[in-house]
Design a protein around this nucleic acid. Structure first.
Lengths: 239, 239
DNA sequence: CTTTCCTATACAACTATACATATCTTATCA
DNA sequence: TGATAAGATATGTATAGTTGTATAGGAAAG
């Protein structure tokens, strides 16, 4: 009887080696791993074998890859508390991450039937549509679309053009405070557009939030829909 | 025509044929043998019969195989003298082989109890850990980890980042000469990580050397552990 | 009947190479 | 200063070839 050595496949050994590197903190979240070619050279194996090993870590959510850019240590999923006051930037800053908001579109149009119902206005009434992208540490986190009823919030479009902060823009048009009236959550598959913006694959799961914010007077001032990248955000519910 | 009286098995005949090819220098060390399919075709036998013959040469250490790549003529084991002055590169160059050193990791951490004892420092004191791979003619020979006490050798990390030569880096921080104070040798089985780096099978025997180098002043300046691929190196003791 | 030798087939694991596609970097020009 | 183009990098995909392993079976020898 020869010693039948219980053998670990090379790809698994590579996955283990990289995983322990991550566990030891050799690479910080967001850091770029060595390129596949460099790792293949280091271990003296073919690039495909390295790719197999890395794919394990991607599968586990420890690593994210971007074609043409590299493989990166996955950022810790952002805990995102949902309460009656949701402020995107504050949450991210509290989590020690660098938030960024990028405006994609800002225009005035008429409300659809569903939107009008949510905002308690008439279908066809003018609204301000604010479309944007939220990032943390340069990584896209969510796509959002906010609708504001122009009848109640004249001048919000111009205000948003300046600040890009919803809270601040609402303040300009006289809404000093607002609270979340309702939040609905569902999981959807990423459309091509959302996938492109969020740097995920088409069909990847997204967390969609539909929320309604009321003014102190109890009237709807904002109807927002947000698509979160499912593997980068964890929503937490407060009591 | 001794078809009826031929009592040597085909696989043994193939082994002999290949062995004499090697003895005649038909293949140089490092050369690739014909593929199993080609040999099977040449001898007019099944691939498994050829594999059996090749496996004999692998047992004898004349041939090394790499899955997916082929069978290669093994390089003769490197004689590696162990004395009070051990310089890796010089030994390999003297043996007519092309040495190469590859840095795997370089970081500063705190010493474990055993490491501290060897280096005559306190447990938890900062050390510089230099992890690397040594190759000869592109073939991995040994994995090593060198520890340097930062209290006595401030700046060694930066120096190693530049030179990758231990002797040179020690010179930068004021250690112009050092000698081996002790060397301990044991045989261990290859872990998955070591097997991966050394291109051996998991569980294969490795030669592990723990050595301590002192400065001229008699203080420990380096505590090194090295894992040699057992079939690729022979350690020799000097008087 | 059992063991050894050899054949046959199929699949898994790894290598080698080429090319496509996305990203990053740098030079260049207006 | 900023925009653009070009080149270098890096990951994604496809194809083919090679060794490793498992299984099954036939033929000859002890």
């Amino acid at each position: 009887m020869r010693d039948s050595s219980d053998k670990t496949p090379i790809w698994k050994a590579i996955a283990n080696a990289l995983r322990s590197d991550l566990a030891e903190g050799r690479y910080a979240p967001g850091d770029k791993l060595p390129t596949e070619a460099a790792l293949a050279d280091r271990f003296g194996v073919n690039r495909h074998t390295v790719r197999h090993g890395i794919s394990v870590l991607v599968e586990e959510g420890l690593v994210r890859t971007r074609r043409g850019a590299g493989a990166f240590v996955a950022a810790t999923p952002t805990d995102y508390p949902i309460g009656n006051r949701v402020r995107f930037h504050e949450n991210l800053i509290a989590a020690g991450r660098r938030p960024e908001k990028r405006m994609l579109a800002l225009d005035e149009r008429t409300a659809t039937i569903g939107e009008a119902q949510a905002l308690q206005i008439e279908a066809g009434d003018p609204v301000c549509a604010y479309h944007g992208l939220s990032l943390a540490d340069g990584q896209p986190i969510a796509v959002f679309e906010s609708l504001f009823p122009l009848a109640r919030l004249g001048g919000i479009t111009a205000a948003l053009k300046e600040t890009s902060s919803v809270t601040q823009a609402l303040s300009v048009v006289g809404i000093d405070d607002y609270t979340r009236a309702s939040t609905r959550l569902t999981a959807v598959r990423a459309t091509a557009t959302h996938a492109l913006l969020l740097h995920v694959a088409e069909g990847d799961p997204l967390l969609r939030s539909s929320s309604l914010n009321h003014s102190q007077g109890g009237l709807p001032v904002e109807y927002g829909r947000t698509w979160f990248a499912g593997d980068r955000v964890t929503l937490t519910l407060e009591a």
